[in-house]
Write a protein that binds this DNA or RNA. Structure first.
Lengths: 339, 339
DNA sequence: AATGCTTTTGCAAACGTTTGCACTGGAAAA
DNA sequence: TTTTCCAGTGCAAACGTTTGCAAAAGCATT
């Protein structure tokens, strides 16, 4: 039990050969004779030798760790992304080190510091809501660590980026509402400084314009949680000219709307249509089931990880890629079928 | 940009002192004079020196990495656990390396191999559904890596363990159903070889016995997904003596039941009561909102991480702890209020 | 001026690998 | 026989730290 760790030197001593030969034999270096390779491998197996990755990393000045910064872990979209990342990374021989920024700039700063100290091979990052300074990400690059942003990207830093097609997703959602007869479409958004808010808002606005529906600014609200939606929606419904439908920035908000609308005695989708944005099981638990824009977080994660690993391996060199992951409108029960 | 990494030796050269002095100064070793410490720290800051953790780890023969094996990532309970782990770890200066076993023994084997090679300080593991051999976990211990099991524990290996109180959770859920007048309570369970199934089943059975309700085996089913529940439930409802309520092994299954019951034209909870097991947002999206047993995954994660870190730090020594995290029944709309 | 004590610093080894280069011994070539 | 060549192996340095021990420096006490 307290047996100290077996090293390459132990094997060398046991076999009366030099550590360098052992090292080469284990790595199938062509210089080493077949016989020696066999003997060494047998011995390594017998002593249940495990290569010390820490020593290896130091020697080689690199490691196989990918740092992942995620604003939240308990979150369908982000956990899907992490799953995509983990899958790709492990298939390519990389390990994933996971950090949660908790939507805090301070925490993000500490995390990037840790990542640099750990000399990770690469970083996959999504900005916290708070973050509006980017020096810490520049530092990552300065320390020769590869960097790819996903979802909440950073425009100021030149890197690869993977984003969801928020604009097209919102556009298709709102056009769907319009095609089913909706005309006064309320929009519940996140704070506007976030890229995703801007993009989805633009999709919303363009869908209206394309269909010659006047934009009514009084139908646009900042409201991005279930709780807030449950509070806000009754007021919105009792407006002099209430909306006939809602487009929500995420599914949680949409469930809050759904709850409030039903509570107000209105029928969904006959009286009021609702469309969310996110994907996941939540939409299926609703009654009626929620029409929503599926974001394919898993694809985002896989794509970002692949991009990063290619950079690390030096396959891609100078160029920087912007990858856009398509969304998909999932039409369900909270919207009407087109006439 | 391509400036090679700054080391302690660069600082030493710059200041015409020895690397050992620099090292000690940066670590506030008491032997070093205040003045030297200041000079060194200033210089380190100026050159934006970042300690190379790989070198440190090799030298000290340890690192600050906690390996986490989780069967699934996109999963409310498990992601809550991961969040609890990450939070505790980062507060204590540890980093989290995340692996997904995908419920596969083969994958679990590869993961433990990676973890040993990486010489992580400790491992937090939950068994995959497939796993029924445990040598790989014994190997972890043999390599002097601390190990704590959570949720899906391994009885054969002597370690600390953190589990959810499945028995008490199920007991309280079923007693609640009984107290609201239910007598024929159907139970939708996972495959019985899993500990959690056994424990919850025992809770279910004991609740019936305690209240002198005869156990009807024909009301117990293996059914643990939303899809299966949507398929099975109509048949169950059309039994000659149908149940008046359902207790489901998880919330996904419960939402499937809810859907089928409503579709059959029955009212919830007036005609049929439903209770799930899991916690999370899903329960709130249902209409009526789902009564369920909250598992406190976050607490599980925090507790397991704390236990592991104490072991790593050598605070706890020989003893092995079994920690049980209490569940909490969240009574909502799918069950009646007690008369 | 010598001694002793304390404070501060430096030397060198060590952690476990990999790898450029030099060396060995034997076979092939001269 | 000598030379050349090559496959196979070993030496030693290097990666960036920490740390036991020795040495130096400073200072007060004899």
């Amino acid at each position: 039990m307290a047996k100290t760790q077996i090293t390459i030197i132990d094997i060398a001593r046991e076999l009366n050969i030099s550590p360098s030969t052992v090292s080469r034999a284990l790595r199938n270096h062509p210089d080493i004779s077949r016989k020696t390779v066999e003997i060494v491998k047998e011995c390594a197996e017998r002593l249940s030798y495990k290569p010390n990755e820490m020593a290896l990393n130091l020697r080689l000045g690199r490691n196989n760790i990918i740092g992942v910064i995620v604003p939240e872990i308990v979150h369908y979209f982000f956990s899907s992304i992490v799953q995509g990342i983990e899958e790709t990374a492990s298939a390519e021989g990389f390990n994933v080190m996971l950090f949660r920024s908790e939507e805090s700039y301070e925490k993000e700063l500490k995390i990037t510091e840790s990542l640099i100290n750990a000399r990770v091979a690469g970083v996959l990052a999504s900005l916290s809501k708070e973050t509006d300074r980017y020096e810490h990400y520049q530092q990552i690059l300065d320390n020769d660590i590869k960097l790819v942003f996903y979802d909440r990207i950073c425009i100021g830093i030149i890197t690869d980026r993977v984003v969801v097609d928020d604009y097209a997703g919102a556009l298709s959602a709102v056009e769907h509402l319009i095609s089913t007869g909706c005309r006064r479409i309320a929009f519940y958004s996140s704070p506007l400084h976030l890229e995703i808010s801007k993009n989805r808002r633009n999709g919303y606005l363009d869908a209206l314009r394309k269909n010659s529906i006047p934009v009514d600014e009084s139908l646009i609200f900042v409201c991005d949680t279930r709780e807030k939606a449950m509070e806000l929606t009754p007021q919105v419904l009792s407006l002099p000219e209430p909306p006939d439908s809602f487009f929500a920035i995420n599914d949680h908000t949409a469930t809050g709307i759904l709850y409030a609308v039903k509570k107000a005695g209105l029928r969904v989708p006959e009286d009021i249509s609702i469309c969310g944005f996110s994907g996941g099981d939540l939409a299926l638990a609703c009654d009626p089931m929620l029409t929503t824009v599926e974001q394919h977080g898993y694809e985002v994660g896989k794509t970002a990880a692949k991009l990063l690993i290619d950079k690390i391996k030096g396959i891609t060199h100078g160029q920087y890629t912007n990858r856009i992951i398509k969304t998909k409108l999932m039409v369900r029960g909270t919207t009407k079928t087109a006439p």
